[in-house]
Write a protein that binds this DNA or RNA. Sequence first.
DNA 1: ATAGGGTTAG
Length: 661
Amino acid sequence: MASPRFQIVSTCSPLLCHFHSHFPMFSTNHSSAVTTFPPFNNTCTPFSTKPNPNSKLKPPFIPSLCTTHPHLKQLLYHKSKTGFDKLDDALQVFDEMLHLKPLLPVLQFNQLLAALVRMKHYSVAVSVFREMRVLSIPVDMFTFNTVIKCCCHLNTLNYAFSMLAGIAKRGLVPDVVTYNTLIKGLLSRDRPVEAERLFEKLVGYKDMRPNVVTYTTIIKGLLSQDRVLEAERLFKKLIRCKEIEPDTVMYNTIIDGLCKTSNTSMAEKLLRNMEKKGCKPDTVTYSMIIDSLCKDGLVDQALGLVSEMNEKGILLDVIAYTTLLQGLCRSKRWEDTKRLLSEMDVKNVSLDLHTYGILVDAHCKEGRTKDAEDVIEIMIRKGVTPNVITYSTLMDGFCLRGKIDRALEVLNTMRANGIVPDCCSYNILINGYCKRKNVDKAIELFRQMPAEGLKPDVQTYSTLIHGLFQVGRHSEARNIFHEMLKKGDKPDIVTCRILLDGLCKNQFINEAISFFNILERNGIIHDIQIHTILIDGLCKKSKLDEARNIYDNLASRGLQPNVITHNIMIRGLCQEGLYEEAKELFSKMEASGCLPDDATYNTIIRGSLVNKKYEETLVHIENMRARCFSADASTTSMVLDVLSTEELDPFVLAFREWFLQ
DNA sequence: ATAGGGTTAG
């Protein structure tokens, strides 16, 4: 799960202090104007009065940025599209702009801000803006809209809204872009009600209409809240009333929303629809659907879309190739992977950080850590620098093979290359140690995190709690859980699953039941896994009636038992000698659209053996073979056992043939 | 020739 990294805000000091070093003249005079800006708080104001010990006195002079007026204009136009290579360069240009007389038009300042946005240096952009205001450099709606976007990215929405006052004060009027930006900001921070209110306000104006961007944003918001039906209704209405003409980006947004809510077939339908309406799908459209199909395991269908792209002359870019590569790797289609890589070579599409990352991951998942290391070596040779994710992926690969020492070596390698490990890097190692049941080492790493400036996250805590429960150290597990609560970290659904499972497996079934009840009372367990865990716990304590009770109530809670739920119930029933009921469940699950997997067959076969229904064992084995599943170790040993003890039973004799072949 | 909406890895 990727969490947004607004590192400049959370650990803002280096860059902002650096920024500060360029503008020593403001360090004392205007502090009151800047200290109100939320992200800096008091710990790091961009113009704080404290001297910065790290600051260089003068940034190195960059000859390429040597500026005459027309030259500077051209440069800014270019950099507003591409961003500067270094933050330093942007700041130096700004510094030079401040010294030019007469002052450059607002356009150039806006372009500088745009360049900073492109470089994702949002807080720096806001500081530049503040600086402009302090110096009374004229600003316009472009400026405000750019800065509002920055505030949204920095999650300082209040500050974004306070811009509205500044806009009014200058006699300007917020435009539809302002509204669109704010609506998007609210939606991305999970504040749909306020977003909707703002949208209503926009609708209410006589001289401003929501446009295609507005509706794209709104529909995206609806889809991200799983309100697929409302989104569909709104979209259809917009087309019917000719309110807007949907463009490719709008279609792509909706298709993305549909893909992310696992409505891939609906997304494909929309693709056909947009073609019919004369709106050309592009590489992005196809990439999203290809990604979704691959994630559904429908790689061939994805490849079908690729040929369609080729026929239509829509070129695959590096993202499309990367998406497809990932799909091929996941389904272990190595030949296709190789072919695609050489196609990229022929078509001159160079692999980027993501592409290499996927290859590293693929090798690791196959246990080929050596090949993964080679990929990293190749990427470095090709001038692509591995990042913290690349190295963490390799660490995970080593942990997967139980080679934690090698994983630790990678940690040191990345440090040596100037890459700072993050929380996920630690989580991988902690998980590695827990898997090897070396929980003490895991705890040691956990305690080491703050010293590296890292704060354990929910996943860290969950991993550790899981590790402790697994080795039976339940009271320490509880302590870590309480530590987590005390630190103000909220357990998520995974933490709850781990706790419930831990309690069950550590013989605290009654506590597990009351924990389950607490979760239920708080309405936070609309989760089939939670129910499945408790059912399993109850079955293992021979509390079959209670387990069955939960199982029977699943549907009324709107929960769909999955194949694991069924396997657990079937095993529970067999163990209590209720083979007939187990068999009934077995046939019912298939009818309800839940296909039995290899574990199901193994379970029912063992159940039939335990309950001496050898005739049925034969049928189950045949069915299992027909589906290309095979007996696992425990089933095999049980079959062999029966073969030796029941050799007179005619059915046993019959399936001996089957089994021994 | 400046601002707003869409895609990928731990």
